[in-house]
């Protein structure tokens, strides 16, 4: 019985890992599409969001089957229940990558290199956050999971930086009002992606320790 359970847990880990790669790719591709104004790439990201949605359903179903069939306890219960929570944030990250790509479809050339640089840093940081989350979950590495919250501060600071740059741009250049607002939206999506990554890291901490945001959940 335990062997079957271990196999099911391994399958769950594999699916989570795959979903982690899918959303990291979505973020990476979204920023590339923005940088190069590649509308084809943007369309591909929007289409690929359904794969992420499907993966979420697949993982939810696997978790519910595990809860039903194996009624796990202790560390096993924490792993399955945290996976069930993590996929919700992972799916939202996929949505935001698609949201960014939707904006790419309506944008033309970006006039503000400083803002683009900030957005690229935000994309890079959030991708790293997700990478750490996935590795922390799979290797039960608490230290790695704890690093993610600090990285979200970097993303938040970058968002503030973008906001200031946009405020300046609005004052200096009244012609491109719509474009700067679109860029602000993109920055906000990256900021939200950072928040979701932090949420994921909190569930990783729970899966290892049973403590979620300094509170014992069970």
């Amino acid at each position: 019985m335990r062997e079957l359970f271990i196999k099911q847990l391994e399958e769950l880990n594999k699916s989570l890992h795959q979903m982690g790669i899918l959303i990291q790719d979505a973020i990476h591709n979204a920023i590339e599409a923005l940088k190069t104004m590649d509308k084809e790439k943007a369309k591909e990201i929007i289409d690929a969001d359904s794969i992420i949605d499907h993966k979420e359903k697949e993982i939810e179903s696997a978790c519910l089957h595990l809860l039903l069939q194996q009624t796990p306890v202790a560390g096993d219960l924490r792993r399955v229940s945290s996976a069930l929570k993590m996929v919700t944030d992972m799916e939202r990250i996929g949505d935001h990558a698609a949201d960014i790509s939707e904006i790419v479809l309506i944008l033309n050339k970006i006039e503000y290199q400083d803002i683009l640089d900030c957005l690229m840093k935000m994309a890079e940081t959030t991708t790293k956050m997700l990478d750490k989350c996935m590795n922390a979950y799979l290797s039960e590495d608490l230290k790695l999971a704890d690093q993610v919250a600090d990285m979200d501060d970097i993303v938040d600071n970058l968002f503030v930086e973008v906001k200031h740059a946009i405020a300046n741009a609005v004052v200096m250049d009244k012609e491109n009002g719509e474009q700067v607002l679109d860029l602000l939206m993109i920055a906000k999506y990256f900021e939200r992606i950072g928040d979701h990554a932090e949420n994921i890291s909190e569930w990783v901490v729970f899966s290892i320790t049973g403590v979620h945001k300094d509170e014992r959940v069970i």
Partner: peptide
């Protein structure tokens, strides 16, 4: 016991 057993053998 069923959420955070202290002892590895219990878990």
């Amino acid at each position: 016991i069923f959420s955070h057993p202290r002892n590895n053998k219990t878990e």
